[in-house]
Structures are given as C-alpha cells and as structure tokens.
Design a protein around this nucleic acid. Structure first.
Ligand SMILES: [Zn+2]
Length: 383
DNA sequence: CGAATTTGACCCGCGC
DNA sequence: GCGCGGGTCAAATTCG
C-alpha cells in the first residue's frame, strides 16, 4: 500500500490510473476495516464460548466431585490443563493441539467460525490479514500471551493447593507462591489482568454472586477514603481477590470495585452473566487484542472503557452513567476503547465506536438477569 | 460455638 | 539502608 502511494507521488503524470488505484485502495481499506470488525466480533464470540465453557466445566466438575472426593485435587489440575489446551486452540486455530481436547467442542468452534465468516474463503483469508495488522499496531501483544497467562494461572492454582495441603507453615508456602509469582513475572510483560467496575452504589459489588470474606482495609494517604480487600470464600482456594474503593465523599456511595483472578469453582447461575462479561473482556485483553469487540454485548446502555496500561491490563466498566444517547436507538451501545502503552490512556488515542446492537435480543435478556441478583446477595450480609 | 469482621502488625517492593 | 506505602495476616472481637 505504501509503495503504491509512493509510486503515485513519483509518477504524477499517470493521474487517471493513479486515481483508479486510489479508489481501489480506499475500497481495500474499507474492506480491511470491515474485516477487522469481523475479527473483533469473532474474538468476542470466542471469548464468550471459552468463558461459558469454563463455567459449564466447573459446574460439571462440581457435580462429579462428590463421587470422586479423593481425586479432587487431580480433577482441578486436569481441568486447568484442559483450559490451557482450549485457550491455545482459541488463540491460534491453525495449531493442532492434541492432548485431551474434546472433539465436540472443536466441531462447535469450527461451526462458529464458519458462521462468522459466512462460509467465505475470501473473508477467512482476510481474517488472517486482520490479525497481521493488529500485531503490527501492537507489537507487544501476541496471541500466545493468552497461553502464558493461563499457564500462569495454573501455576498459581497449584501454589494455592500447596498452601492448603501444608497449612502448618504458611510462610514457606507463601514464599513458594511468591517465587512462583516472580518466576511468572519473568514472562514477557504479562501481569494479572484486572477488571474494574465503577458503580454509583454497592449493587454491582453484591451482584457478582460470590461470597466475599473481608481480609483487610486500608486508607489511602492522600484522601482518607477507605479501601477494603476481599477474597472469594466460596471455594477454599479460590484465587479471586477484589478490592472496593470508595470514590467521592462519604455520603456519595460511589464505589470502584476491582476484581482480579479467575474463579476456580462454579458461580451461581444468576451471576454467570456478569462474570462472563468481565472475564470475556479479560480474555480479550489477554488475547492481545489491541482493539475490542463490542463488550456492550454484556453491558448494554453502559460505557465499557477498555484500556490497557503497561502495568496491568484493565477493563473498566463504568456503570455510573447510563449510556443513553437520544440520537441513538436504545439498542445501540457505545464502547469507548483506548489502548495505550503509557500509564494514562490519552484521549486522542481513544475513539468511540457505536455498534448497531450486535444480537440485540440476547444481551437484553441476559442483562435483565442481573436485576434479581441484588436481593440474592443482600441476604448474604453487607459487604 | 463457629464464622465473619475488625484492626494493628507485618511483609515486601520501591524510591531516596 | 531506611522509610514509605500498598497489600496481607492473624489475633481479638463481633455476629448469627
Ligand atoms: Zn471464587
């Protein structure tokens, strides 16, 4: 493309031909953009499938567990192994991963791929092109990062298991864990992904459907707004942490909740949507996606600011202001995405895309399931 | 009485 | 090395 442009500068006499070429170029650009959009949609779909599958797998393992209580730990480990395999295949569909991959799952994934690409070989090749462009834009990211992340997760789970098995000397176990973390940190530029939820009230924090055990509270130096630390207590070794920070004055109940990690146990059915949304976003981050598909699939009417910083890939769901634009149809949601290698995502680098309701039916029904959650967790006590 | 919360102590990485 | 600050632990306390 660049070469063509250069040649058009060098040979200004061939005006007509060059303008033809320019038109062609524009058409190709438009095509590329379309293809990229397709690619993003596909990525989101894959993340969704992965998340749903994980959730289902955890439910299944939970059902089966009572029958094989002795081999519980083994089950967990093999399950994580499985996840790694799946993610590998998701990251790069052309790699044939053997191990314990379920054939049915493979078939369904292929089906989805076909569905997305509408059976067009042309589009499929274009998909690869989209990927190339993306990695050009974002050289730091790589599809294999996802694998790295998951294997890291697996390691952490193992460390936690160690923690439990030898509760005597937590210190040594903790050291092991720490060493593991250091070892993991040596993996090129990949740290824990986090999901922030900014909300006007406590609702979202109690909406996640998990039991949270408070284990600490700190007040920041600058503003003495307390920050509480919670840990998931549904499973004894669930690695998920969350911290809730008050934002604004004492009476304004604005909270910023940050989730970190992945649950290793089934979540209540009512909570899976929220979790799927957040973890799908996290998966997108891990997959090295520099731009993001419409996460508004999960959170219609709300801003989903999706920003990558050097330190922590972070998804921020801003639920403080409903995303309602009178110029738009209600089914439209806007997704503001910013990808930046600096600590502060620059506004110039971020742009807002509006989607014409990707599957406008499904998200609405799914979203409506979030409403009854508030009272579900309320009876589990204030958090 | 067991489970959850509170809260000061403690740990550890980081900058000076 | 030292102090600071964010994050975590665990004894004491409260809660159900
Ligand atoms: Zn959990």
């Amino acid at each position: 493309m660049i070469k063509e442009k250069i040649s058009s500068c060098v040979h200004p006499s061939d005006g007509i031909v060059e303008s033809d070429k320019e038109v062609e170029l524009d058409a190709t650009k438009a095509k590329l953009e379309k293809v990229r959009e397709e690619n993003e949609k596909l990525k989101l779909l894959l993340s969704t499938v992965l998340t749903d599958y994980k959730s289902l797998q955890m439910h299944v393992s939970n059902v089966i567990r009572p029958q094989h209580e002795a081999s519980m730990e083994l089950d967990i480990n093999s399950h994580d192994d499985f996840c790694v395999d799946v993610s590998l295949r998701l990251g790069r569909s052309d790699l044939n991963v053997s191990k314990n991959v379920d054939e049915i799952d493979k078939i369904s994934l292929d089906k989805i791929s076909d569905e997305i690409s509408e059976g067009s070989d042309k589009k499929r090749s274009a998909l690869g092109l989209g990927f190339q462009i993306q990695s050009c834009e974002d050289p730091d990211t790589d599809p294999t990062m996802k694998l790295d992340y998951l294997s890291k997760d697996f390691k952490n789970t193992k460390a936690d298991n160690k923690c439990i098995s030898s509760r005597k000397d937590i210190k040594t176990a903790r050291n092991e864990d720490h060493q593991e973390a250091l070892e993991v940190r040596e993996h090129p530029g990949l740290k824990k992904t986090r999901v922030c939820v900014k909300a006007p009230c406590e609702d979202p924090s109690i909406n996640d459907g998990c039991q949270w055990r408070k284990y600490g509270q700190k007040t920041a130096k600058a503003n003495p707004l307390p920050r509480a630390y919670y840990r998931c207590s549904m499973s004894s070794n669930c690695p998920v942490r969350k911290q809730v920070q008050r934002c604004g004055e004492d009476d304004t109940s604005a909270y910023m909740t940050t989730y970190e990690g992945t649950h290793d146990h089934p979540l209540p059915m009512e909570a899976t949507h929220m979790a799927a949304g957040t973890s799908a976003a996290a998966s997108l981050l891990q997959s090295g996606s520099s731009s993001s598909a419409s996460l508004s699939y999960y959170f219609p009417f709300h801003h989903v600011s999706f920003s990558t910083t050097n330190a922590h890939p972070t998804v921020t769901l801003d639920l403080t202001r409903p995303n309602y634009d009178p110029n738009q149809l209600p089914a439209h949601s806007s997704l503001s995405f910013s990808s930046s290698s600096s600590d502060r995502p620059s506004p110039s680098n971020s742009h807002t895309l509006s989607f014409s309701g990707l599957r406008s039916q499904a998200p609405l029904t799914k979203y409506s399931q979030m409403a009854p959650l508030s009272h579900q967790t309320k009876l589990s006590g204030q958090q």
